[in-house]
Design a protein around this nucleic acid. Structure first.
Lengths: 349, 349
DNA sequence: ATGAAAGCGCTAACAG
DNA sequence: CTGTTAGCGCTTTCAT
């Protein structure tokens, strides 16, 4: 197991009867070396099973061809799409994806980010628990792209779940609901704040009374409390922070014998795996998470590949070409969401 | 973004007024240096925000403190537990986890493994699509632990799903089922072979007629065909290769108006997220996937940490101490599974 | 077109 | 206890 010493470039060069520098060129810039020599080197390298050392390359170039995806909780199905989306995009460009779970802790997250510096070329930071300032600080040391967060100067991808929730409310209003509960997510969740900001005026406009209950942890178990709270509030419908919570609400209502959607309509958010499996199937706000992941990776790679301007750029350059590469055009990309109506919503009881 | 040059050990040494080697020692072996000096160096390092270069360390030591988890498909919920289990264990020991998706392709897998060599200290290989020989070959270059696979000389963790399926069959037999369909998984799946080997004799013993249908891709969509095949075979119960497939079976039966479990019992495997959410809730073979992940990581780390015997061991050592560290005691760990009975199984129609 | 040599950041001898 | 030196594997000047 893992014993055999790996052949180095020196071995290849020796076997091919050339200098290491020639071997290096033959392998990386075949054009800048005699065709015959190049072929020979390549052949020898292949025969020896030579694989360039990533560490040596990284040490020399400062680039690791590795990107981290930093998440509060790898097991939350919501993030699966991100893992997949960023992973796919990164792989396409020959990057390696490393996964970092911060266990919902701001401290662990800050620590992770610090350690990551130097290990990776950049990171996609999703649903960060850090403050704007902390993120901005981290962004000074490590190429960062944030998902579902707005940090001035840092590129980001936003999923418009707030908009989706407004459409969910409109849907409920059209079904005759007049008293709707919003089962809110973690107090530290940036998304949750945005949604509340969007839901309140929308409710007023629609003539719907919105009762905010919570905050709840975005997990199934918390759904029981949310269901009870919605019931107690006299709501005929409940919009949950996410599908996990909505699943829990459905379970609780089922256990209580409250028919869905006859006496209570339920709407989730994210359309995670399972939303169409539960009975009744869950009406939910679908967000293109995988696309968000791809896009986040895209943004990051663009920065990374663009950072070819190694040697300290002159001051002049900094102020020039504001069009080609506008400094503060890091306006986050906003991805639209849409409401998927299933059987968990119906006319107001 | 990511501009500021990181301080190196040299910067720290200079700022502290010592030689780099002293700074190095102060930071890594505080005991072997004057306490005052050490304190000063540490203070300076902290002030400068010094972080040792992983690349340089790796280049020098040959160890990257990184372990890869290689999977055929990151999006398959079955693997979530593995991601979580290995990730948790690795993090505990200060290792970084990298995720590699081989897209269900043996070629991509072989390629990935080759590239990984040098980038990581070892890898956990789950549900490999490679042949035993290919895996054994890869294991010569990279510390490997396999999950759900038996490779002589390579440590592994096995989930006893075959045993679980036999218990599932016993459960069905006790409910009076006499004709049961097994919706088999991919032909290349090692697990599937094991299960068939276990199910056939068990069926004979139980006086149950087992009809093997398939093979099917382990995905929801394939469940429709499986359901139809089970129906056509006149079975009163179907055991599916995995929960994903079972979900599809449930959906199809629902669409066809076949009541579950009245006219058809359904059993899945893995107890993935959602198995208790579907209606009727799915009876399934639960396997401790997360534990398997932890254990796989454990085995790998044991090898890694144990591999302190750098300089080529003498031939003598190889034959000695067969007890302390038995060479071929790489007997795979077998983790027990158990049947979770839910409402998708009932008495034979 | 090719070789020799320097050096990325760090640690491990080897002096002193 | 601390400084000097060498070298991990590679790319990249700089010569030739």
């Amino acid at each position: 197991m893992a014993v055999r010493r790996q052949p180095t470039l020196r071995d290849v060069a020796a076997a091919a009867g050339v200098a290491v520098s020639t071997a290096s060129r033959a392998l990386t810039r075949p054009g800048r070396v005699n065709a015959d020599t190049a072929d020979r080197v390549v052949a020898v390298a292949k025969e020896l099973g030579y694989i360039p050392s990533a560490s040596a390359r990284a040490l020399l170039s400062g680039r690791t061809a590795t990107v981290a995806l930093v998440l509060p909780d790898v097991t939350n199905p919501f993030f699966f799409g991100l893992v997949r989306g960023t992973g796919a995009r990164l792989r396409e460009s020959g990057y390696v994806q490393v996964l970092a779970d911060t266990e919902e802790s701001a401290e662990v997250e800050a620590d992770t980010l610090r350690k990551l510096r130097g290990q990776v070329d950049g990171a996609v930071l999703a649903a960060s628990r850090l403050s704007d300032e902390q993120i901005a600080a981290a962004a000074a040391d490590l190429a960062l792209v944030v998902v579902n967060r707005t940090i001035p100067g840092t590129p980001g991808v936003l999923l418009d779940t707030a908009g989706g929730m407004v459409r969910a409310l409109e849907h409920l209003a059209s079904l005759g609901h007049r008293r709707v509960a919003y089962a809110s997510g973690p107090a530290t969740s940036w998304s949750d704040g945005r949604r509340r900001e969007a839901l309140l005026p929308a409710a007023a406009r629609l003539g719907v009374e919105l009762v905010v209950v919570g905050p709840y942890a975005p997990v199934r178990q918390a759904g029981a409390q949310a269901a009870d709270a919605a019931l107690a509030a006299g709501a005929t419908a409940v919009v949950a922070f996410n599908d996990l919570l909505a699943f829990g609400v459905l379970e609780r209502l089922d256990a209580l014998g409250v028919p869905v959607p006859e006496r209570m309509s339920v709407i989730g958010c994210d359309d995670i795996f399972g939303a169409d499996l539960v009975r009744p199937a869950l009406t939910t706000v679908e967000s293109p998470v995988e696309r968000a992941g791809r896009m986040a990776a895209d943004l990051l790679l663009a920065r990374l590949e663009g950072d070819q301007t190694d040697d300290e750029p002159t001051g002049a350059d900094l102020d020039d070409e504001p069009l080609a590469h506008p400094r503060d055009a890091a306006d986050p990309v906003l991805l639209p969401t849409h409401l998927v109506v299933r059987s968990s919503t119906g006319a107001a009881g």
